[in-house]
Design a protein around this nucleic acid. Structure first.
Length: 493
RNA sequence: GGCCCCGUCGUCUAGCGGCCUAGGACACGGCCCUCUCAAGGCUGAAACGGCGGUUCGAAUCCGCUCGGGGCUACCA
């Protein structure tokens, strides 16, 4: 955030161009605190790694975070008092600070080639020595002196000169006093002229008035470097909130390789509601009132406290998300649900921009009967398929569709009589609505044929829906209409 | 290997020395409701990693141990 209170969000484009769910997780807590404290929430693109830069990833970050409802007050696309908000556009900003650090003896040039560094690391790993890190070969040398030695590279980097008494403890708003490892002579300016994260984050946070740094706990070990930089530059150190890391089932840090849900876009593709995902993310590492896991963002903000955030990395359990998503779907109005389903089908590319009026109407009428049966939005189409299909296509399924044939095959021998009786009773039905259908079929099949409801209605369900499992039968038949129902019944007969 | 972070039901969590024969939620089992499937109601099983210590008393404090994770890049 910026100004006197608030927090800042730091986001870096991922190499795959796909925003990470961890980004949204940090953003959510960041936003909650910014709102609670009355501060600003800033989005900054940390694109200092040219090798991993992807052209399209920034747009995806904007789109997916907005989808989740995490709106930023300042950022590359909305501007703000501290623009630009892309680090790649701030290169000149960092340079003078690097020069100052060199002039004051806190940083030095290093001409060691990547190969030499790699060999050095290998040797250290093999010798199992306790003290690893750069060996300071270049420290105190001029370019010419260094050039005479092996492993020389033409374009130097700039490294921090970590003093022996570098402070290793700091206060974290989530964890309290934290001890961190002793840093090594970290590179702060790369050979290509780009700063590393460590330098850029400190300079930008200071210049942008960031008061709270919210990031994952993998950054704890880097924090002493950052604190050193703040001190050398004579700047106030911001508050740090190191969030727990989201985990895969095997407890490792959540990764796209092991977990499809590590991709933020995955949730949208699968038909999860953004408000359900937001609620789920909030529950990760954060308590709720007993029995009130379904909470609004406003409630979250209201009671937000850093000290309530857990230090244990939570395992991502999609079962709970499924339940939450269902709960949020059930809370939607029928029309809203229909609109959400249509929106999702368009996003998924299942439906084009021009949705036929008939489809839209069936969605609207079908919404209430599938509402409490949905876990995700992408289940809507399969559940409503028998209503959407026209009769010819539907009837062709008796030949081509494996699951329909199985449903038919599972019927009892008396199904023929049941369907005959149903057709007879329905043919003269005056009002074609769910209640009348229920009454009529109840009388004709349950009472008339002395069958258990379960067996009486199964053949009708299969005939009309093509499946042994469907939304409520009478409501479905009411939506389908008299002609289609009778045609389908006679066809199965 | 080194340094650092962490350790309550399968999972998310409550607990911050006695209110704990450890509470809630998801998932799971059973029952009820019921036109199938759901939803809903009731109910059941399920955890303080281990060992020492401090204390009248420990899930809560300390130490050790074991276990998990992170970092150890001219990546963030």
């Amino acid at each position: 955030m910026t100004d006197s209170t608030g927090a800042r969000l730091r986001v870096a484009p991922s190499p795959t161009g796909d925003p990470h769910v961890g980004t949204a997780y940090m953003a959510l807590f960041n936003l909650a605190y910014a709102r609670k404290a009355g501060g600003k929430f800033a989005l900054r693109i940390e694109d200092t790694d040219r090798a991993r830069f992807r052209e399209d990833s920034e747009q995806q970050i904007f789109e997916s975070l907005r989808w989740l409802g995490l709106d930023w007050d300042e950022g590359p696309d909305v501007g703000g008092p501290y623009a630009p908000y892309r680090q790649s556009e701030r290169l000149e900003t960092y340079r003078p600070h690097v020069e100052r650090l060199i002039a004051e003896g806190h940083a030095y040039y290093c001409w060691c080639s990547p190969q030499r560094l790699a060999e050095l690391r290998d040797a250290q790993a093999k010798s199992k020595q306790a003290d690893t890190g750069y060996d300071r070969l270049c420290l105190g040398m001029t370019r010419d002196e260094r050039a005479k030695l092996p492993g020389f590279s033409d374009t130097p980097v700039v490294r921090m000169l970590i003093p022996d008494d570098a402070p290793l403890t700091f206060s974290d708003v989530i964890r309290g006093a934290v001890k961190a490892p002793r840093p090594d002579d970290q590179v702060i300016l790369k050979a290509d002229g780009f700063p590393t994260y460590h330098l850029a984050v400190v300079v930008d946070d200071h210049l942008m008035g960031i008061t709270h740094v919210v990031r994952g706990e993998e950054w704890i070990s880097s924090t002493p470097k950052h604190i050193l930089l703040y001190r050398w530059l004579g700047w106030d150190v911001p508050a740090f909130a190191h969030m727990p890391l989201l985990r895969n089932q095997d407890k490792s840090k959540i990764s796209k390789r092991k977990n499809p849900a590590a991709r933020l876009l995955w949730f949208r593709e699968r038909g999860y509601l953004p408000e359900a995902l937001r609620n789920f993310l909030q529950l990760m590492g954060y308590p709720c009132e007993e029995g009130h896991e379904v909470t609004s963002f406003a409630e979250f903000v209201d009671g937000f406290e850093w000290s309530k955030v857990n230090t244990v990395g939570p395992v991502f359990d999609l079962k709970k998300l499924d339940w939450l998503n269902g709960a949020y779907i059930r809370a939607l109005s029928d029309d809203e649900l229909a609109a959400r389903i249509e929106e999702h089908l368009r996003y998924a590319g299942t439906w084009g921009e021009a949705v036929p009026a008939r489809h839209r109407e069936i969605l609207r009428q079908g919404a209430p009967i599938i509402k409490e049966r949905l876990v995700t939005l992408d289940e809507a189409l399969p559940k409503l398929g028998f209503l959407l299909a026209d009769d010819d296509d539907f009837l062709a399924g008796w030949e081509s569709d494996e699951s329909m044939r199985e449903a038919r095959g599972g019927l009892r021998d008396d199904a023929v009589q049941v369907i005959d009786a149903a057709v007879d009773a329905l043919a003269g039905l005056a009002d074609w609505n769910a209640d009348a259908l229920h009454e009529t079929l109840q009388a004709a099949l349950v009472d008339g044929l002395a069958l258990k409801p379960k067996f009486a209605f199964a053949p009708v369900r299969v005939a009309v829906t093509g499946s042994r499992v469907s939304p409520p039968l009478f409501e479905s038949m009411a939506i389908l209409g008299r002609d289609s129902c009778l045609r389908r019944l006679r066809a199965l007969r």
